[in-house]
Design a protein around this nucleic acid. Structure first.
Lengths: 198, 198
DNA sequence: ACCGTCATCCTCCGAACGGGTGATGCCGGG
DNA sequence: CCCGGCATCACCCGTTCGGAGGATGACGGT
């Protein structure tokens, strides 16, 4: 099954599997909700899933999909390989993570490997997983503060918005700085954006 | 002609025009340089061009393409509609700007319109163009300062790095804030990243 | 029962930031 | 020729940040 919100990509993928004997495209969906509904009926062995989609996004869809149908293998096929995307996909339990610049042979191989119970990772994704031994993720509350910082809010404003004291805001930010390895709010929002945290 | 670095997208686009009588895909390219070489031989009427590509990117390719073959119409087909992307594409003289979530009918229509000398804009792109009457772009020097801010540098460090006084750095930043409509360095880097300025 | 994480709060303080006002020189377009 | 944008610099001043200490309670897992 193919899940992607771009008609162009869906057509391209279907075409790539058109003349492949051992792979059949049994369904297509353009967002997460549609994917769940289609999977229930079509019962695919493997799902090729984009991550960034309107409505229910890829990670949410994967979580529900794997809860409903643990036997279905999910291979992520996306444009981005940011730490946050990769980490969330891995946590959701995917069988593969490929980038959209992959050639058709790699896609064929990935689907077969996944169907056989194996795992497939794009090279850049593999290295992204390696290069984060101490990847400290900010807590939900810390991210909330960070998002307001990204909007240009001062600590005092953030305190008012979140109904906490300014001291607490500063404490949260101190922890965020430590976890992101920076020492200023400007650098923090840049790192957070690059990692897809906000 | 189709220009996109993703094989999946190229296949999808070719498939979309496969059974369309009045449109023929005469060439494909996976980056800007290849696009220039192919255009010279294939002489397409219309080029569907992605913007973000390895090597020579879309805007650079469009500029050279229009210099060499002014009669060729270029329609941008990309995932993003950031101000900077749209503005640069428009400045390069494109006949259309569509997003990759466009349905096939819209693509057909766009190619026909472009071939006939018309212009096609995705709705969100049109509104992006509208919503910037006073879109003040920071000057090169100001962007240089902003990039260092995004690295987390303090004004004093920026001054040392650029061999200017701290006062000058603050002046540049003051102007950047005014142009971006923000009042803090954190918000400035966010806006700059969203607009593709840094 | 204990330890780590999260979330909340406090004080003190120097450095950094952002706003205001003003000035100089250069350049290019009207 | 003059005006506006750019780049450079100065001084003042109030506010904000970020660092360095600490502290408390709640929760969840070992």
């Amino acid at each position: 099954m193919i899940v992607d919100d771009h008609p162009v990509v869906r057509d391209g993928l279907r075409g790539m599997f058109d003349h492949v004997a051992d792979i059949e495209v049994v369904a297509e969906a353009s967002d997460g909700f549609e994917a769940l509904a289609m999977a229930r009926r079509a019962r695919p062995h493997v799902v090729l899933m984009d991550l960034r989609m309107p409505g229910l996004d890829g990670v949410g869809a994967i979580q529900r999909l794997r809860a409903d149908h643990p036997e279905i293998k999910v291979v992520v096929l996306t444009t981005y390989d940011t730490d946050a995307d990769v980490a969330r996909a891995m946590a959701a339990g995917v069988a593969g993570y490929l980038l959209k610049d992959a050639p058709r042979e790699e896609l064929h191989r990935a689907v077969r490997t996944a169907a056989a119970g194996g795992a497939v990772l794009a090279p850049s994704v593999a290295s992204a997983l390696m290069s984060r031994p101490t990847a400290q993720e900010p807590s939900p509350r810390e991210l909330e503060v960070l998002r307001l910082v990204a909007r240009g809010s001062a600590n005092k404003e953030i305190a008012r918005a979140l109904l906490i004291s300014e001291t607490t805001v500063k404490t949260h930010l101190k922890h965020v700085f430590a976890k992101l390895g920076v020492d200023s709010r400007a650098a923090a929002v840049v790192v957070a954006m690059e990692r897809g945290l906000i």
